[in-house]
């Protein structure tokens, strides 16, 4: 229960913001917070977490807020890499071959979701394959 006290502000914020499927539980000295929310609520929760533990160095919280759960097939996604092109691969893993690239800020289409880390996408040029969701932002 001590961890729920430590991260009370985070849990309260998640509750107040209406995070869907919010699940908070504590096990073996680690607090787990899971749920679905928009990208902006996810950012707000992470900024709150960072305020409570500036470098996330306590190792006592695993927070998985999924901001991409509500994105449907056919949605448009913007490539939001730091600077480079986004690799498009033949399978949902960095072990899979690179079969194409999408430019930074190019808009692509969601074909299907393999999981929360890898989505199958296609570009307007017809290149298709799997890309890492961390670099895709729903429009």
């Amino acid at each position: 229960m001590a961890l729920q006290e430590k991260y009370k502000e985070l849990i309260d914020t998640a509750t107040a913001q209406g995070v869907n499927n919010l699940n908070v539980r504590e096990q073996e000295g680690v607090l787990y917070i899971d749920g679905d929310a928009s990208g902006s609520i996810k950012q707000q929760l992470w900024d709150t977490y960072e305020r409570l533990d500036p470098n996330y160095s306590s190792g006592d919280l695993v927070m998985n807020i999924n901001s991409i759960a509500g994105v449907t097939e056919g949605s448009k996604l913007k490539v939001t890499t730091n600077s480079s092109n986004l690799n498009i691969r033949s399978g949902p893993s960095t072990d899979a071959d690179i079969v194409g690239k999408a430019a930074r800020h190019e808009v692509v289409t969601l074909v299907s979701k393999a999981n929360d880390q890898w989505w199958e996408i296609k570009t307007d040029d017809g290149e298709a394959g799997y890309s890492y969701t961390q670099y895709l932002t729903p429009l």
Partner: peptide
Amino acid sequence: MALNALKPKKIDN
């Protein structure tokens, strides 16, 4: 954010 989404038991940084 990316690591927390992978369902680890714990992250020690």
